[in-house]
Every structure is written in structure tokens, then in C-alpha cells.
């Protein structure tokens, strides 16, 4: 190792592939478990999964979720069961993407997509309401004008939930513990130790 062999190291790099990419035009694929912007899921029949139980709001360490439940109108129920999430707001100026809400949700209503590029122009835009969070009729996230979605980034929305077997019980790995999602059906679990 010579005293000036650093020159060789820098020269060597010129013939190696680049580690940076063409960022805004292409994105690196995100791992399955990545925490991004939330979506509110629906059942395969189009019913909303949220039951307005406020567990997500309760567990949120940043106190960024505001939920109000209401009784389902009997003639046109929004969700199966008695109640549904009447108001659902997430303040992204506070959210820390810890995914405690995803772990807490008993009906897998709230999950996180892979998107983190959202730059609001005002504070009102930062507060996502049900209109923005709820998936559309094909089960995909509603793309807001200030969000940078590329390609079909919006089809992997529930990775963390499927990774998590919150009990830490090895017997429950590789088992489907959740209901199907609109547009995607019942997604496969991670195999974990069961493989």
C-alpha cells in the first residue's frame, strides 16, 4: 500500500458502474415493507374497511390521525358492520411513518404505500382527508397533483401489514391473516421461517 495509492482508487472508480441514478425520472424499487403515504383500503366488494374504531388515532405517537366514526346508514352501508369511519384525516406535517397505525388497525383498513415524494404547497394540502386517502374503484391510491407517482407504484400498498405477524409467534408466519383488498384480492404473506 503506497502513500499515494489513493490516486489509483479514484481512477479505478471511473470504470465502475454508477451508483446514483436518474432520480426524478426513474425510481429505485422500494422494498416490500417500505413505509410511505397511507391509503385507506376497501373490501373486494367495494365496502370500506375502516370501522371508525380510532385505534390508529389512539396509538399514533405523533397524534396526527383524526377519526370520527358514525353509524352506518341502514339503506346504504359504507362498511360491513355497525359503524364506519365518517371522518378520517392524517396530517402529514406530523406523521413520522412509524406504521403503528397499520399494526393497530384490526380490519387492515389503513396501510402504507411506497410513495414518499409529496411536496405540498400549503398546509391545507398536507392534511389528507378520506377523499384523498381512500382507494379508488380499482383499489389504487388516488394520485394527488403534488405527488410523484411513477408507473404502477401504487399497486404495492400493504407490505408492512403482511410482513408483520405482530405476535412474534413463528407458527403464524406464512399464514394469511387478513381479508382481501379491492382490486388485488388476498395478497400472499411473506414466507418467513415457514418457507
Amino acid at each position: 500500500m503506497g502513500r499515494f495509492s489513493g490516486f489509483g482508487v479514484t481512477l479505478k472508480q471511473m470504470f465502475k458502474p454508477r451508483v446514483t441514478g436518474d432520480y426524478p425520472t426513474t425510481k429505485r424499487p422500494k422494498p416490500d415493507r417500505f413505509h410511505g403515504r397511507h391509503v385507506l383500503n376497501r373490501y373486494e366488494d367495494g365496502m370500506e374497511k375502516c370501522i371508525g374504531c380510532e385505534l390508529c388515532a389512539g396509538v399514533c405517537p405523533a397524534k396526527c390521525i383524526y377519526v370520527r366514526g358514525a353509524d352506518n346508514p341502514p339503506d346504504a352501508p359504507v362498511s360491513p358492520g355497525e359503524r364506519y369511519g365518517f371522518v378520517y384525516e392524517i396530517n402529514y406535517l406530523r406523521c413520522i411513518h412509524c406504521d403503528m397505525c397499520v399494526e393497530a388497525c384490526p380490519t387492515e383498513a389503513i396501510t402504507e404505500s411506497k410513495l414518499f415524494e409529496f411536496s405540498f404547497e400549503n398546509r391545507a394540502d398536507a392534511i389528507y382527508t378520506k377523499a384523498e386517502l381512500l382507494v379508488d374503484d380499482e383499489g389504487r391510491a388516488r394520485r394527488q397533483p403534488w405527488e410523484l407517482w411513477l408507473g404502477d407504484e401504487d399497486d404495492r400498498t400493504s407490505g408492512w401489514m403482511r410482513a408483520t405477524s405482530p405476535a412474534g409467534d413463528a407458527d403464524y408466519e406464512g399464514r394469511v391473516n387478513w381479508s382481501g383488498e379491492l382490486g388485488f384480492g388476498v395478497r400472499d404473506p411473506e414466507q418467513g421461517q415457514s418457507a
Partner: peptide, 20 residues
């Protein structure tokens, strides 16, 4: 699931098992 501020090591164990 996160690059930093993982919140992965929880009291009593870990939040999830290792991924495939």
C-alpha cells in the same frame, strides 16, 4: 421498512421477523 428511525426493536422482541 425505513432507512432510519426504524422503531423495529420493541419491548419484548422485534416488530417483525426477517424478510424473505
Amino acid at each position: 421498512g425505513l432507512r432510519m428511525n426504524h422503531n423495529f426493536i420493541r419491548v419484548g422482541g422485534l416488530a417483525a421477523d426477517l424478510p424473505d
